[in-house]
Design a protein around this nucleic acid. Sequence first.
DNA 1: GCGATTCACTGAATCGTTTCACTGAATCGT
DNA 2: ACGATTCAGTGAAACGATTCAGTGAATCGC
Lengths: 333, 333
Amino acid sequence: MSSRKRVTIKDVAAATGLSPAAVSYALRGVQTSPDTQERVRQAAEELGYSGNAVARALARGRTGLAGVLSGSLQDLSEQRFVEILGRQLGRHDLHMVVVDARGEPDRERMLARQLADRLVDGLVISPLDPSDPAWAEIGEGLPIVTVGDALAGPTVGEVLFDNRTGVGLVLEHLHRLGHQRIAVLTPSRPSTPDRPAERVVAEKCAALGMQANVVNTRHSMEEATQAAAALLAHDPRPTAVFCLSDSIACGVYAAAAARGLEIPRDLSVAGYDDHPIACVVAPALTSVDWGLPEVATAAADLLAAAVAGRPGPPRQVRVAPALVERASTAAPA
Amino acid sequence: MSSRKRVTIKDVAAATGLSPAAVSYALRGVQTSPDTQERVRQAAEELGYSGNAVARALARGRTGLAGVLSGSLQDLSEQRFVEILGRQLGRHDLHMVVVDARGEPDRERMLARQLADRLVDGLVISPLDPSDPAWAEIGEGLPIVTVGDALAGPTVGEVLFDNRTGVGLVLEHLHRLGHQRIAVLTPSRPSTPDRPAERVVAEKCAALGMQANVVNTRHSMEEATQAAAALLAHDPRPTAVFCLSDSIACGVYAAAAARGLEIPRDLSVAGYDDHPIACVVAPALTSVDWGLPEVATAAADLLAAAVAGRPGPPRQVRVAPALVERASTAAPA
DNA sequence: GCGATTCACTGAATCGTTTCACTGAATCGT
DNA sequence: ACGATTCAGTGAAACGATTCAGTGAATCGC
């Protein structure tokens, strides 16, 4: 590609007859006379000089990069989260390194380790497996902000979802409508049956005296469609499906359509996270709103504060869920 | 956070009585005896050593990072593109730095410059303003793969959409159905009226003798909803709306619902990019499929090849569009 | 048994910045 | 006019790896 060599600060120094140190100062407008600054700026412009971010990062001990470790980027809501988070991190001059655990806790741990090697200044993570002891070690050397569940290790900030309430809102809603035999589609892998959200589902169903068939799938619409198809072929068929993401709910819509089931007449469907498309699918999807924009903003601010070295105890932000009742849930036939 | 200092290669060297160089070699399993390697590995483990990615990047001249410059991350299809691209880049041991131009060409140029400062090994970009002369300079020093439109500068690979055909498929479809007065919702900012896709729209409409009202909006569903609301309040109302993304189409759905218009009876709607939700919205959305997974794979492979220094001329991949007719388009009333 | 090759490892240079500790000159207050 | 501050700028030491050139020792072929 580039035939001629990269131009460094030394080249600018040579061109201006200054020392590299002076150039470094001048370019940042400190400790130098205005006319020197102008002279340096001009020379830099002419030579086409544009720093070397890696060298700068090594010297200053900061890369300006924030790691974002998504549990599953296939989920529409996580995609949206990344979009908004990026916008908010940008306000603090941080860029995102986005990596995707794809629902696999092992991969999540591996990626966190990789990123922690000083490539990123901090990490935002919505953990698949918040109880993994590895977090203690990783959080030791790197500012972490966790989103969703509390982490088994030190963090600089936590944006915690009250999943107990969130799950409760949906299950009580379905219970109130008269559903007794429901299915729950969760994005967990079998290897982490202990995820907080799922534990809450089991507890709450038991408390309400509902019979719940909990099925694991992934966030991809395609896989959720398959899982839902299997579920709906079951006899007796559940009267309602609670999906732990709106992406999964979309999969259920597709499976229901394929089977000729009409929502909500033949089947109630509830989602989770309240993605904007919940209003556009038909029938409009009942879901649980967490105020994702505020969540992302809080996460970004917490991380930025820690990266900038602003002191303070790990701050917690608790976000409350709100059930948004739409047209996809009704009393069973 | 971390009370004790970061452990470096020198610490491992001291612990094993070797030189830093030897440790460096041993950890990569070259030029050292097996038992030394084992000894080093063990010491590294005990000390909790885990390289410093920045220092490594400086020494080797590679960061292992690929920049991904999205035109507008609000677009569901771009989000999906990022997800798949990340998966494919991962196969080549590249992580993604994801940045969002948010539809602003100026921001796009600024971000490209920022990333180009050796922070990333290469850049994947779906350009908002492919004709910007700045690309020449940026592409000079950095492997770039462009997705969508050809860039006004050197690249190592191009995945080109045949927008002429893609736009033509939709417009001909609408024309065939009998639509004469249509609206086109594009995500462009007014500052780049010259984007290839839009130019094609104008040409094709003229060729078909259709009257097209081209309106700029953004990829966010909310903004598209507003733009569509204004559009639908117009008298005479267009009989069809062609949206240059499925996200925008979702906005039109919302606006149509708010106005009590039934799709496709009162209004035909066509999308672009064929996101999976096109099947789930109601009525199912007519859209144009580009084979996004293949596009992302091609882009990742092209970039990885260039980053790895494999030679070869800039390869071009042209992808052909396919119209997917669903239930959102019909003959006007 | 002897020169040539391989092997395992070392020391020092390198990557391109930033920053610390100085220095000589100019400016200051008194 | 004199000691004390600022100011603009320098040289060298970080930052933490990789890698080049070199060095003894062991191994090889013959």
